[in-house]
Design a protein around this nucleic acid. Structure first.
Lengths: 184, 184
DNA sequence: CTTTATGTACAGTTTTTTCTGTACGTTCTA
DNA sequence: TAGAACGTACAGAAAAAACTGTACATAAAG
């Protein structure tokens, strides 16, 4: 950080302003399923004027290097930070992904997509299973039959919803969403 | 539940099928910031053939009534379940909101909107503060000046992103999103 | 008005998550 | 090949969250 060139007063003022912003952003980061301190780490990287090493982060955050390692990994998995290569340095360097639109859509492409897919799979399998049960040799009588049919209907509706969500994620990933909601 | 009319075998089979689905849906519910067991509670209500009371939920979930109370409240806050009135009963009854599209958009309208608004507020305030600092009597010299300007630029970008997100949420809330991504 | 049923606040307990320090494997350097 | 620097796996400690039972407030019923 080039902040050591500043007077103590300037340094304090800067940190005061940044801290409030980092606090706010970090707190709302739970929407991404991220812990508060990892959110703060993100905030730190957001304001950093250059890619940081794990040791630097630990220094600033006053936390262990291990925590920085796991925190960065979490952010990396969500593509919220990127690994940066710098020749001459053996250390890994990280910086935030400044394209927040991309971060947002990546989040859906990574987390929500996975949920959608497994849920569709499980639901289809269950529907199938009921189908088999209904069509079998000794197909169930009332009132069991009605219950199975109702369950099946509900799950069918759920599948339809998930398919919609899947398409929505497509639209975000492809950038089509910006036709409907322009960046500016 | 009308399930007591079933034979033990039928009951077991039904629960087996439902359980797998509830498990899957419940697990992915963390995307809504909901704990696993509250997710299971949601799953239970999803398959229930009629609105349930807290006592019934506690019975089925094998958990305390207190937990059911807080779980339902969480789901209620997110509009994932609705309170149902039934004359003759003194107990509160709850059922899931079966319109999952609505549930999805409500989630954004409730949780994300709040985050967006507070973040925009905090960012604007910080930008303003830097502006004042820059224009003041003894406006800062380099290198402090550059750092402030850079912070300001970054925050300006962030605000633009949040304004976009705000518009996206509008589009979801208004239903315009279904023009771009039709329900079917 | 009294009694009874119902939902929730709260304190304490259990479970889960986060955080740390050490140890170890890997990779770069000499 | 040996040595040093680096990131992470892992086990234990600390912190946070979830869960329970009791007690209480509220409102309906008698």
């Amino acid at each position: 950080m080039s902040l050591d060139q500043l007077t103590p007063e300037q340094h304090t003022e800067l940190l005061k302003v940044r801290k409030r912003v980092i606090e706010a952003i970090g707190r709302n980061m739970d929407l991404y399923g991220i812990s508060l301190s990892t959110g703060h780490l993100y905030g730190l990287l957001f304001f950093a004027d250059k890619p940081m090493t794990l040791d630097e982060m630990g220094m600033e955050m006053k936390m262990s290097k291990t925590s920085m390692s796991t925190g960065v990994r979490t952010l990396l998995d969500l593509k919220m930070v990127n690994k940066v290569w710098e020749k001459g340095s053996r250390k890994d360097l990280y910086e935030v992904e400044y394209d927040w639109y991309q971060t947002f859509t990546d989040f859906f492409a990574i987390k929500w997509r996975k949920a959608v897919e497994t849920n569709i799979l499980v639901l289809r399998r269950a529907i199938q299973e009921i189908n088999k049960s209904m069509a079998g040799e000794n197909s169930p009588q009332e009132p069991f039959r009605s219950i199975l049919e109702e369950d099946q209907r509900k799950m069918g509706e759920a599948v339809k919803y998930y398919e919609w969500l899947d398409r929505l994620i497509d639209v975000m990933e492809s950038g089509e969403i910006y036709n409907l909601v322009p960046k500016e």
